[in-house]
Each structure stands twice: as structure tokens, then as C-alpha cells.
Computed example of a mutant assay.
Amino acid sequence: MALDIDDPKSGFRHCEVVLFINEEVTKNGGGPGFYLTFRSRPWKDIEDGLKSVVVDTQVPRSIKRACAWSALALGVRVAVRQREKQLRRVQQLHDQVEEHEAATWTLATDLQRLREERDEVVSELRSAKDNLKQVILERDMLQRRLVEFELSQRLLAHSRDADYPGTPPRALIIKENREALDTGFQDEQRAVSPKKAQMASLTDTLHGAEEFPASSV
């Protein structure tokens, strides 16, 4: 018997077909030799083996027919083997597609998380900028109040000492204190200039973050 009815890799689904091929091989004087020799070989080798039998003038025609039936059965076997190989390849491609989709989803999730973190940082920087402005305004106001208070104290002291000889005129005291007030603010502005530079840098950072393009997922 050339073909085994119970062989799942033969490619045949009906035992009647297998029995018929075996009968034709046996009827023409053939045996399982040709089929067993080439059952694990590619079609190219099977066809070459059949050709060597067909062109051999010493081989009876009946044997050639028997080998042809075996080659037919081997062709079905090869087709099944190729189909299984293609199915495995399709499954591999399918798995790769799923892996790529999973990776794409992960990247999209990471991108969304980074965008949310960026927005949060921008909000914190904007809040810090507003708070810094408010602190500077309050500091300037308190400084002016302090200088004005010192001026009022000096004027009050002058009014008490006005009857004493050598006391500077009231107008001169006011002028001196106004000059001191202006000088104090100028010194403070020079001291604050590094802080202004920091605020400018903070503003640039906010602007850069707000202009960052939002990538679509």
C-alpha cells in the first residue's frame, strides 16, 4: 500500500480516494517505494524523480502509470504541507500586527500622560508667576509705607524741635527724605533686577510650553 488511510498529512479526506489510488498503483505493478522515497521531499524533487522514470525506456509503461499515481498523491501531500506553512506564516503576521497595535496603544497612552503632565507644569508655572508678581507688589507697597512712616517721624520730631537753634528747615527735611525715598526705590530696583530676569525666564518658559504642539493620538 502506497498511501496510509490513517495518515493525517496525506492531504486526502476520503478513504475511498486513498483506496482507489492504492489499487491503481498495485494494479500497474507498482508499490509503496516511490511514494515513501519522496513523501518528505519538495515538489521539484518529486517531479524530477517521476521524469527519470518516464524517460527510462527500460521501465514498463504500467510502472510509469503506477509512479504517476504515486506522484499525484505526493502532489496533494505537498500542497497540504505548503498550506500549513502558509497558515503558520499568516498566524505569525497576525501576532506581529497585534504586538504592533499593543505597542501603538502604549505609546499613545504615554503621549497622553506626558501631555497632561506638561499642562500641569504649565499651570503651576503660571500660578508661580502670578504669585511672584503679587509678592513684589506687596513688598514695594510695604517699602514705600515704611519710608513714608520714617519721613513722618522725622517731620514730627522736627516740629517738636523747631524752637531749638540749628534745627534744619521743614522744607529741607522733606526734600532730604523725598530724595532718600527715591534713592531707596532705585536701590531696590537694582536689587530686584535679577528677580525680574528670573520672571522673564519664567515667562519665556510658559510661552514655550503653551506653544508646544499637541500631537494627535
Rank of each mutant, 00 (worst) to 15 (best):
D204R: 10
P168F: 04
G166Y: 13
G166Q: 10
C67K: 04
Q91D: 07
D45K: 13
S62C: 11
L125K: 10
I21P: 00
V135P: 00
D130F: 06
R118N: 07
V54F: 07
R77P: 02
I21H: 04
R61F: 01
Y164P: 08
Q198L: 15
V90S: 02
D4M: 06
R61L: 10
Y164S: 08
S216I: 04
E16D: 12
R83W: 09
R145K: 13
S52D: 10
L125F: 05
G11W: 10
S62G: 11
D45G: 09
T205V: 02
S40M: 04
M141N: 14
P60C: 11
F149N: 04
N177M: 14
D204T: 03
R190W: 09
D95I: 08
S123V: 02
S193D: 14
F185S: 07
A71E: 04
V121T: 09
K27G: 14
I173L: 03
S159I: 11
E138R: 12
M141Q: 13
R126N: 03
R170P: 02
E101P: 01
V59M: 14
A2C: 10
L93T: 01
E24Q: 12
L111I: 14
E211D: 15
E176Y: 09
L19P: 03
E101Q: 12
C15L: 04
Q112W: 02
S159K: 05
K133T: 14
A197F: 03
I173F: 00
Q96A: 15
K133A: 06
V55C: 11
K129G: 04
E188N: 13
L181A: 01
P168D: 00
S215I: 08
R41K: 13
R178I: 01
T109N: 11
T203R: 09
E210G: 10
R145V: 07
D182E: 15
E120Y: 12
V78E: 04
W43G: 06
R65A: 08
I46W: 03
D48E: 05
T109F: 06
T37V: 01
K129S: 11
E116P: 01
T37H: 09
V147T: 13
L125A: 03
L111F: 03
